[in-house]
């Protein structure tokens, strides 16, 4: 891949992100209803005070003008002020971001650690009872609603068995490493559920593809042990196409965090999103949507680039 095509691709993401911001801003500001509805029902809030708030929030201006103002401020690192708390949006989000990063980062690693061995095992014992079993399990994993698995896990492990806390980040007054870890077990497992199911299928398919190729037969003929042939020769090449799938699924983990964090009262940006929705906190919603879209664009870009780097046959347009 040439440096020129890299730069061209990178520049291509700029209009994309601008387009995304227009779509998001329009949805948020053109949807019926206003963040002031909440105060409008309150008899203690006068009409003048309401009007003052509208001006203070900048909601009195036409939407295109509001957008241009928002964009300019956004580019200068000012993401606006939260309607609910009065804090700067970036501050609100950064406060909540670490919890989400810990959660989704762990889920990401756990998914890889489980999906690859399962995929390899299923591929090397293709059509065995074990393979059929994994096929069925992963099909269930794709079909089962994450929020239901979450509820069932809470029911079994927190309520019936009492092994794990039902939710939260830490016990009040504790907060040791082990304490946080026990709080993480359920949300991380639930968040990894769908990705493990999906990725193990990809690993299986990709490895089956590779095992059928000539150089694997050569390695076998050379007298390599089956174990070495699989892990040294086959798996390495089989994992290459997986890189793109994994990069693209980062977004699935981010989206899943909204549901998982809500079920387990995890104080991350997923729950912040749901909270901000209740209060129609436009600046925070806009900031969160921009961050997650940006992650998605970056993941897509990285997937394209990685693929071209890994497989020199791929030419970027």
């Amino acid at each position: 891949m040439s440096f020129g095509s890299f730069i061209r691709r990178l520049l291509g993401t700029i209009p994309l992100i601008l387009g995304i911001s227009v779509v998001l801003f329009s949805i948020i500001h053109l949807a019926p209803g206003s963040p002031l509805d909440f105060y409008a029902d309150n008899p203690n809030v006068t009409r003048e005070a309401l009007e003052q708030m509208r001006v203070a929030f900048g909601l009195d201006k036409p939407v295109p003008e509001q957008y241009v103002r928002w964009l300019w401020a956004f580019l200068n690192g000012n993401w606006g002020i939260s309607f609910r708390t009065g804090q700067p949006v970036l501050e609100v989000i950064l406060e909540r971001l670490p919890a989400t990063l810990i959660l989704s980062g762990s889920a990401f690693l756990l998914s890889l650690a489980i999906a690859i061995p399962i995929g390899v095992l299923a591929a090397t014992r293709r059509y065995s009872k074990l393979d059929t079993f994994f096929t069925f399990v992963s099909f269930s994993g794709i079909s089962i609603p994450v929020f239901w698995v979450g509820l069932m896990a809470q029911l079994v492990f927190a309520i019936w068995l009492g092994w794990l806390p039902a939710g939260g980040f830490q016990t009040v007054g504790n907060g040791s490493f082990m304490d946080v870890l026990t709080h993480m077990v359920m949300p991380v497992c639930i968040l990894s559920f769908a990705t493990i199911a999906g990725w193990s299928r990809y690993v299986r398919a990709s490895l089956i593809d590779v095992i059928g190729q000539d150089y694997i037969r050569t390695a076998r003929a050379k007298g390599q042990t089956p174990r070495k042939v699989i892990w040294r020769h086959a798996v390495r090449n089989a994992l290459l196409p997986i890189v793109t799938v994994v990069a693209l699924d980062i977004v699935q983990i981010v989206s899943g965090a909204v549901i998982t964090e809500t079920i387990f009262s995890w104080p991350g940006i997923g729950r912040l999103f749901v909270e901000s929705m209740d209060g129609r906190d436009y600046p925070v919603l806009m900031g969160l949507m921009m961050i997650s879209s940006f992650t998605m664009v970056a993941a897509n870009f990285a997937a394209d680039m990685l693929y071209a780097v890994i497989d020199p046959r791929v030419r970027l347009a």
């Binding site: 994309l16 949805i27 909204v258 999103f273 929705m277 949507m289």
Partner: peptide, 12 residues
């Protein structure tokens, strides 16, 4: 396609 689908639908 570049906006995470579930959050987008949730938002709207």
């Amino acid at each position: 396609l570049s906006i995470p689908p579930l959050p987008l639908i949730l938002l709207l």
